[in-house]
Computed example of a mutant assay.
Amino acid sequence: MFKFANVRHPRPSLKRLLWGSLGTGAGVVVGAAAGIIGVGLYIVDTLTRPKHLAAFALYTFSPFELGLPAEDVSFPSLHNDHVVNGWYIPHAEATSTIIVSPGYRSTKTDVLGLCALLWKAGHNILVFEYYGHGTVVGMPVTLGYREINDFLGAVAYARKRSPEARLGVVGYSMGAAVSIMGTARSPEIQALVADSAFATHRSVVEYAVSRTLHLPFVIFDWATDLILWWRAGYHFNQVEPLRDIGRITPRPIMLIHGMKDSIVDPHDAALLYKAAGEPKELWLAPDVEHCGVYFSDRAEYVRLLTEFFDLYLKKSPPVQVEITSNELTDSIHNGSYPLIS
């Protein structure tokens, strides 16, 4: 059997205990701060990182396969700092043009099926890709802050192609959020359908963090917002469709959302609907994922959109909306409309 020697150990002084505790506490604080910053960097990097397509990624359907008389078109963004690509599909008898706005890192091909059906219903169609999100890739993107300028470029192009046509918009996910912000400052748009839109930039990031890390986003909020400004040049509160949607009235809005959405919190649809003015419609589809309402019931989806645009773009008289220079100035100052200067 082993026997321990009888060794006397000196008692640590109060000073040594105090400094040791402070050192340990400082290490914990530094480690926690580093972890928070690391998560913030990961969020912003994931959000804005350039994407590179595989060589065969463009081997997909086009208007040719659907027999659509589409034209490859390009137009400048609002500030003419890059070119936006799209398809324009003219209809000989159309008195209206519908702009189709795809989502985050989505291509115009992703929404081509709906474009074909709306064209058959008698509308001109302009579908485009947000710069850096679709077939033109390899540069950083944002979640609506810069993309709103592509949307406003699309509105200007649609007006140029058919000046007398009344304008409607269908947007998906980020494209829906951008469409809300863009419609709020584009009086020429007469009707809007927003499918799976987020209420605020912060809310969609918070939802993703809570579902993946199972931690409250408040822990990472301030650091992530600061890193977003440092890396991408804007803050969360500069992309808030919830703040802008009330400005669209009296033009009609239809909001669509799947109640099993794992990307955008379905509660955002209720917030947007509450903030919107009349006329407004809300379609909440149970057991449906992000941007999946069309696929859950194609016939009903197309019927409702066709009736919506027939009513507000063909049968109802045009709605007159004026946006004063003071309103635009105020919106610039509060961050509501990014990159407008």
Rank of each mutant, 00 (worst) to 15 (best):
residue 64 F to L: 13
residue 106 S to M: 09
residue 66 L to Q: 10
residue 81 D to L: 05
residue 99 I to P: 03
residue 92 A to V: 07
residue 94 A to N: 00
residue 62 S to C: 09
residue 100 V to S: 08
residue 74 S to V: 11
residue 68 L to K: 13
residue 103 G to K: 02
residue 87 W to G: 05
residue 69 P to N: 04
residue 65 E to C: 07
residue 72 D to C: 03
residue 85 N to K: 13
residue 100 V to E: 07
residue 95 T to N: 11
residue 104 Y to G: 06
residue 94 A to F: 05
residue 90 P to H: 00
residue 106 S to P: 03
residue 90 P to F: 11
residue 58 L to A: 04
residue 105 R to T: 01
residue 61 F to H: 12
residue 85 N to D: 06
residue 64 F to S: 15
residue 108 K to L: 11
residue 57 A to T: 03
residue 109 T to L: 11
residue 87 W to R: 05
residue 90 P to L: 11
residue 86 G to Q: 01
residue 60 T to Y: 02
residue 66 L to R: 13
residue 78 L to Y: 04
residue 91 H to L: 06
residue 89 I to P: 13
residue 104 Y to P: 02
residue 89 I to R: 07
residue 86 G to H: 02
residue 84 V to I: 15
residue 67 G to S: 03
residue 94 A to I: 04
residue 108 K to V: 04
residue 103 G to I: 06
residue 93 E to M: 01
residue 78 L to F: 09
residue 79 H to W: 07
residue 89 I to N: 15
residue 73 V to N: 02
residue 85 N to T: 06
residue 78 L to R: 07
residue 92 A to Y: 07
residue 59 Y to C: 13
residue 84 V to D: 01
residue 108 K to Y: 05
residue 102 P to A: 04
residue 60 T to L: 03
residue 64 F to I: 12
residue 91 H to F: 02
residue 106 S to Q: 14
residue 106 S to E: 10
residue 66 L to A: 12
residue 65 E to G: 10
residue 106 S to L: 08
residue 85 N to E: 12
residue 66 L to I: 11
residue 98 I to T: 02
residue 104 Y to R: 10
residue 61 F to E: 09
residue 75 F to M: 10
residue 103 G to E: 09
residue 90 P to A: 13
residue 103 G to W: 04
residue 58 L to C: 00
residue 67 G to L: 04
residue 77 S to T: 12
residue 77 S to I: 14
residue 109 T to W: 09
residue 102 P to T: 00
residue 98 I to C: 02
residue 92 A to L: 07
residue 104 Y to L: 13
residue 90 P to S: 11
residue 81 D to R: 12
residue 64 F to M: 10
residue 81 D to P: 00
residue 105 R to A: 04
residue 83 V to R: 12
residue 59 Y to F: 09
residue 65 E to H: 15
residue 91 H to G: 12
residue 82 H to K: 10
residue 107 T to Y: 02
residue 82 H to L: 03
residue 79 H to C: 01
residue 84 V to W: 09
residue 57 A to Y: 01
residue 92 A to I: 07
residue 71 E to M: 09
residue 79 H to N: 15
residue 91 H to K: 12
residue 79 H to L: 14
residue 63 P to I: 07
residue 77 S to E: 15
residue 109 T to G: 14
residue 61 F to L: 13
residue 73 V to H: 02
residue 67 G to C: 13
residue 87 W to K: 05
residue 100 V to W: 01
residue 69 P to R: 06
residue 85 N to A: 08
residue 80 N to C: 06
residue 58 L to E: 01
residue 79 H to Y: 06
residue 98 I to V: 12
residue 60 T to I: 02
residue 65 E to P: 00
residue 68 L to H: 09
residue 95 T to I: 07
residue 95 T to C: 11
residue 74 S to H: 08
residue 63 P to G: 11
residue 76 P to Y: 13
residue 78 L to D: 05
residue 103 G to Q: 06
residue 85 N to L: 14
residue 69 P to M: 06
residue 81 D to A: 03
residue 59 Y to S: 14
residue 61 F to M: 09
residue 80 N to S: 07
residue 96 S to H: 02
residue 79 H to E: 06
